[in-house]
């Protein structure tokens, strides 16, 4: 109660300041109207449903899709983006760490490409702010595409179909910037709206079973929602991996995480909080894919991150809730391929 009391008085002051600000700039048309978050904040949910549609250029998205599946983006024409980000594999590759071009294994697990545009940062270490920068880095990365524009652009330009499609979709035609934009456009189209949980958030109380609703309540009450929040249920902040360490298992040899990007000591073993959208179909889990089952992942998270061991029943309820986060792509609920299928 005390916290709220402080918060409310602060909120009142801020509200006044914001009102003054809005009055001051009443004459200016700002594109993004940003209303004050609901005053009844204690009633509002930490998770927001994914918009049901996007206003993307269909031609650019189609072009991006073609590029996304085109191995000519890699130097030896062996890898496309879809090699690791398989749309029928939950947007990932289903392995802990994918093999690199040079024969080794990548440092980290392949994050799903679904709902990728809803993240505020990209890669586990948050090294990229925009999808375009991420794509360009992937093309140049020796471990991923191992290519460059001098290699990629001539190959694309030799394809008359690409040239004409680019000329239709972009005033500038086939250029580096437009290739990147097309790729990003396609990725922006990879949202998976209309999950059962989103339906519940939109007011359909019957979309979830009682167990799933109970799991959601635990998800909030145990503090999972402190980090896994927002439209993407994560993906918009960083957190240190392993708050409550097992003193018997030091992790000196572990991945330095965001430290490799910022060089700040505080960022050691800090990773982007991953999105939990479609988490049921995006195993294995964690930045290095060390965990195969969702139950184990929830259990470890509760212990390491929340400092709170859970009862198996609680884990079960939360996992049930997490399954309701699986959304639809092109009207189809995401699912893993059958065991006998590839």
């Amino acid at each position: 109660m005390t916290v709220w009391a402080i918060g409310k008085s602060v909120v009142v002051r801020i509200a006044l300041a914001v009102m003054a600000l809005h009055l001051a700039c009443a004459g200016t048309a700002l594109n993004a109207e940003t209303p004050l978050p609901s005053a009844g904040a204690w009633d509002s949910e930490p998770i927001v449903p994914i918009p049901l549609s996007t206003d993307l250029d269909a031609g650019q998205v189609a072009l991006g899709e073609k590029l996304f599946h085109d191995p000519r983006l890699s130097r030896n024409n062996a890898f496309s983006c879809a090699t690791c980000h398989r749309l029928n594999q939950g947007g990932g590759d289903g392995v802990s760490r994918p093999p690199t071009l040079t024969g080794g294994l990548h440092l980290r697990n392949t994050p799903t490409v679904f709902n990728v545009a809803l993240n505020s940062r990209f890669h586990w270490d948050g090294g990229f702010r925009t999808l375009e920068a991420e794509a360009e880095a992937a093309i140049h990365d020796p471990a991923i595409m191992n290519s460059d524009w001098a290699d990629v652009l001539p190959k694309l330009q030799a394809d008359a179909d690409y040239v004409s499609t680019f000329n239709t979709a972009y005033p500038g035609g086939l250029t580096r910037a437009n290739v990147l934009h097309a790729l990003a456009s396609f990725q922006r189209s990879l949202n998976t709206p209309n999950s059962r949980f989103d339906q519940y958030l939109r007011g359909d109380a019957d979309a979830l079973s009682d167990d799933e609703k109970q799991g959601y309540d635990l998800f909030k009450a145990f503090g999972c929602a402190a980090c896994h929040q927002g439209v993407n249920v994560g993906g918009n902040m960083f957190q240190r991996f392993g708050i409550f360490r097992n003193q018997n298992r030091p992790h000196e040899d572990e991945d330095a995480g965001r430290f490799s990007v910022t060089g700040a000591e505080r960022d050691r073993q800090v990773f982007r909080v991953p999105s939990l959208r479609n988490v049921a179909v995006t195993a294995p889990y964690y930045h290095d894919g060390r965990v195969q089952s969702l139950e184990t992942a929830v259990d470890l998270m509760a212990t390491r991150q929340l400092g709170r061991p859970l009862y198996p029943e609680e884990i079960e309820l939360i996992v049930q809730f997490l399954h309701t986060l699986t959304g639809e792509y092109q009207g189809q609920l995401l699912a893993l391929p059958d065991e006998d299928g590839s």
């Binding site: 709220w4 409310k8 801020i14 940003t34 978050p37 904040a41 949910e45 927001v48 439209v231 918009n236």
Partner: peptide, 19 residues
Amino acid sequence: RDVLLARAGLLPHYDSLSE
């Protein structure tokens, strides 16, 4: 504003901060 709201526990999620 949103940082203050977040500190006060009145910001349900951080998306607005990203925006």
